[in-house]
Write a protein that binds this DNA or RNA. Structure first.
Length: 299
DNA sequence: GCAAGCCTGACC
DNA sequence: GGTCAGGCTTGC
């Protein structure tokens, strides 16, 4: 379940193993994971060098250079190059079970491998595998990328305290849903939202806008600290997540509440409870994260 | 039957 | 506009 730390780990892997290489061939075996026409996607991506990689929240964008091969017009300016054959971006959302790996092209194909991008001479390839097919690949222009990234709130590790407080103001929904709303704050999913709320001692049903500035400050610190530690440990592998070299993340033993329903709180020994909030399971310690006055009872 | 991220659509 | 339910998908 890739959230920001897992996505950041994949991005670092792509920088190490794919940036600077040319996509020499494209094969899409399941059109559903491509946004738009798979043929168009293949045509647009083929022949371009991967120039660099960036990330916002859980979205990865690989900047692709101009098409290689026989140029139609020689000696044209950079401006011209940009105008008719310039940069495109390979936008990647891993969804729930998306995996990017670099493999020898001769290596056996894992089931649910939907896209193969041959690199350089074709001896190695970038593979996109996604059993549940919630992830999406898209080839887009600078403008389209700006629209997608613009729809996301500030990247969680770099949101400022004033931005964070302002975004909470007036929100009546539960803080758990707020933390997972990518339009407000980009990068958190179910695991790290639960972990940050535990670290800050805040009940997941607390109305977001009712949180005091002091408590919001500790929540912001908790969010950043949990993410920083998880990036250091290369993410959490609960079921499917692996990085570009096929390695799982190491954050699992650090989880305090996520998927620990009924197990004793590591701080106070009280059994961890589970609630469904916004259709997502939420795990919390009823003692360390007391229910706020006025919060609706659930369950 | 449940888990997940993200999109759509219904509702106030 | 915010908020929430539902659907997608497959392995456990």
């Amino acid at each position: 379940m890739p959230e920001l730390p897992e996505v950041e780990t994949v991005l670092r892997g792509l920088k190490a193993h794919a940036v600077g290489r040319r996509i020499s061939a494209v094969e899409v075996s399941h059109p559903q994971v491509i946004v738009g026409s798979p043929d168009e996607f293949a045509e647009l991506v083929r022949g371009r060098e991967i120039l660099c990689g960036t990330r916002k929240g859980k979205a990865i964008a690989l900047e692709l250079g101009p098409r290689s091969g026989p140029s139609r017009q020689r000696g044209h300016s950079r401006r011209m190059e940009h105008a008719d054959n310039g940069s495109r971006y390979l936008l990647v959302r891993l969804g729930m079970t998306g995996q990017f790996t670099v493999n020898p092209s001769a290596a056996p194909l894992e089931p649910h491998t939907h896209v193969r991008l041959a690199l350089d001479d074709g001896r190695e390839e970038l593979r996109y595998r996604d059993p549940r097919r919630f992830g999406r690949l898209r080839c887009c222009t600078t403008e389209e990328l700006d629209t997608v990234f613009g729809g996301l709130g500030p990247d969680a590790p770099s949101i400022s305290r004033p931005q964070f407080l302002a975004a909470l103001r007036g929100r009546r929904g539960p803080i758990k849903s707020w933390l997972m709303n990518q339009q407000l704050l980009a990068g958190l999913g179910n695991i790290y939202a639960d972990e940050a709320l535990f670290a800050a001692g805040i009940h997941p049903l607390t109305p977001a806008g009712s949180i005091s500035d002091a408590a919001a400050g500790s929540l912001l610190r908790a969010v950043k600290q949990v993410l920083r530690r998880a990036v250091e440990l290369q993410g959490t592998s609960f079921r499917d997540y692996i990085d570009i070299e096929g390695r799982p993340g190491n954050f699992l033993p650090r989880l305090r509440v996520y998927q620990r329903t009924g197990e004793p709180c590591r701080r106070c020994r009280e059994p961890i409870q589970r609630l469904v909030i916004g259709g997502r399971s939420s795990h919390f310690c009823p003692h360390c994260q007391p229910r706020p006055r006025g919060a609706a009872r659930v369950g």
